[in-house]
Amino acid sequence: MIRKKIENMEESIFICGFMASGKSTLGKALAGELNFEFVDLDQLIEKREEKSIRQIFREKGEAYFREKEWEYLLDLTRNFKGVVALGGGALQNQRIIDHLKVHGLLLFLDTPMEVIVERVYNSEERPILFNESGKIKSKETLFTELKTLYSEREEFYKQAQITIKTPLFTTVQEMAEAAKAKITRHV
C-alpha cells in the first residue's frame, strides 16, 4: 500500500532549508529510498551556466543568480518528477513557495545554526564565507551574518508541508526513512 502511494505520486519533493543544512545529502538518500530521480538545483545551475555559484555571484551578482535559479526551477516543475534539493536562498518570496506547493511537496530540513556555521566555515564554495576583499570572515562574523540571513528566510522555510529536524537522527538513512514515512502520510 505504501509503495503504491509513493509510486502513484505525480509531483516532486522539493527539499528546502538554509545553506549547508544537508539538503543534497538527504535528497540523494531520499531519492534512493523512494526510487525517484534526484536533482540538486545548485549543481544544475552550475552545469548550465558553466560556472560555479561563487563565480556567478562574483561576476554577475546575486540578482542574476536568483533570476537563473527561478528560471531553472520553473523548468524542473514542468519537466521533472523526483526529489529536488533547492538552494538555501531559493525561497525568496511567497510566489515561489506557492508555485512549489502546487507542483509538489515542500520538505524543510531544519538544522541547528551551530552545525551550519561549521559546515560553511569549512567550505570555500560558499560566497558568504568571504568579505569584499576575498578574505575568509571570522566565525563570529559569519555566525552573526548567517543568523540574520536565516531569520529573513525562516518564515518561508516554515511553510513547508513536512519538517525534518536533523538533530533527531544519527544517520542520513534514518532521516530519509523518516522523511519517506512523513511523505507517505501526506500523500
Rank of each mutant, 00 (worst) to 15 (best):
M1H: 09
I2W: 04
I2F: 04
R3S: 14
K4H: 05
E11W: 03
E11V: 07
S12N: 04
G17Y: 14
M19K: 04
A20N: 11
S21N: 11
L26E: 11
G27S: 10
L30R: 05
L34W: 09
N35K: 13
N35Q: 12
F36I: 09
Q43H: 05
E50V: 02
S52D: 06
R58C: 05
E59K: 07
K60A: 12
E62H: 10
A63Q: 15
E67H: 13
L73P: 06
L76R: 01
L76D: 02
R78L: 09
R78D: 09
F80I: 05
G82S: 06
V84W: 01
G88Y: 01
A90L: 01
Q92R: 14
N93E: 11
R95L: 07
I96S: 04
D98W: 00
D98F: 00
L100Q: 05
P112V: 08
P112Q: 09
E114I: 07
E118V: 04
E118K: 14
R126T: 10
I128T: 09
F130H: 10
K137P: 06
E145H: 05
L146A: 02
E152Y: 11
R153C: 05
Q159P: 03
Q159D: 02
A160I: 11
T166A: 09
T170G: 10
Q173E: 15
Q173N: 11
A178Y: 09
A179S: 14
